[in-house]
Simulated scan of single mutants.
Amino acid sequence: MAPSPGTAEDEFERCLTERTAQLREALDRQTMLLREAGHRVATNLQVIASLMVLKARRTQEGEARLALEGMADRIGALAVAHRLVGTEDSLARFALAELAEGLIGEIGAGLADDRVRLATEIGMVALPAAMASPLALTIQELLSNAVRHAYPGDRQGEVRVLGRLVDDALHLEIRDDGIGIDATAVNRQGFGRSLVEMIARQVGGTVAWSDAEPGTRVVLTIPVAPGA
């Protein structure tokens, strides 16, 4: 008996459906493995940061202790970036607002009092995952610098992280209302400022330091892919 019309097409559709399901299953499995790997990296980074904090506490006050505390904070920022990317719906992109809020939470938890408020003002900005670590280091460095130096004594104030996309470029601004750039900006030869400027160059961007009257404003401008 001759095959009924459409049998070949039906078989093709069935094979195509099965193959599509197999590919989707393989993709889901790889995505799960990538998420697990990212979570493990974040956990390991947090453990390293905690070990450095413990070592810092056993080190006498001075340059060595400050260096250990600073490196622990930077490694902690990388952990925040890895943890965020690993929990996003898409492993290829992350929300800048969530990264900033995560870093603010980490830094805020280490403050001895509430004299200095930390806040964000960032719209719906989704960026490539590869930018998460550089931006985490930059935001952490600038926030920490402002918290440490912009509000001496009993002075109170607020440090804000602002971010927006303008003409396919990210404008990231960290602004405080403290004692001003002359007193708070990291020395040009200092590690913190050198780190921020190095990161800006690596991502093809620029960084500008200025007086906010009152306070200090740092603006990082980075080109991003259209449609971010």
Rank of each mutant, 00 (worst) to 15 (best):
L96I: 10
E106P: 03
G108K: 15
I104Q: 11
T138I: 07
M131L: 12
A92W: 12
T120H: 11
I122T: 04
L137K: 15
I107F: 15
G110S: 12
A112C: 03
A109C: 08
V116N: 05
Q140D: 08
F94R: 11
G105N: 13
S133F: 05
A112M: 10
V116F: 04
T138Y: 11
E141R: 10
I139L: 02
P128A: 05
D114G: 13
I139W: 15
A119I: 03
D113M: 07
T138E: 04
I122A: 00
T120A: 08
D113S: 05
L137V: 09
V125G: 01
T120Q: 01
T138V: 14
G110K: 12
R93K: 11
E101C: 00
A119T: 03
G105L: 09
R117W: 06
L127Y: 02
T120S: 03
A92I: 05
D114M: 10
A130N: 15
M131A: 10
Q140F: 05
P128H: 07
S90M: 06
A136R: 02
D89A: 11
V125W: 05
E121C: 00
A97P: 09
L99H: 10
L99V: 00
R117V: 03
M124W: 15
D89V: 15
E101R: 08
G108D: 05
A130D: 15
R115K: 09
L111W: 05
I139H: 04
L91M: 02
A136N: 04
I122K: 00
A112P: 09
G108H: 13
G102P: 04
D113G: 00
T120F: 06
P134L: 15
I139C: 02
T138G: 13
I139S: 08
I139R: 03
D114P: 03
E98I: 03
L111I: 09
E121G: 00
E88H: 04
A136F: 02
L96T: 12
E106M: 11
E106T: 13
R115H: 11
A119H: 02
D114L: 03
L111F: 11
A132F: 01
I122H: 00
G102W: 04
E106A: 14
A129T: 14
S133M: 14
L137R: 09
L135K: 06
S90P: 14
A132E: 10
A97H: 09
R93H: 14
M131W: 09
R117Y: 04
A92T: 13
D114N: 11
S133D: 15
E121F: 04
I139V: 11
E88S: 12
T120D: 07
F94V: 02
A109H: 13
A136Q: 08
R93W: 01
L127S: 08
F94Q: 07
A109E: 08
E88V: 00
G110P: 05
S133I: 14
D89K: 08
L135M: 09
E88C: 13
E141D: 07
E101V: 00
L137M: 12
L137D: 13
M131D: 13
A112N: 14
S90G: 08
R115Q: 09
A97K: 08
E141K: 01
G105I: 03
A109D: 13
L91S: 06
I107L: 08
L103H: 02
A132V: 09
L137C: 06
S90V: 07
L91E: 02
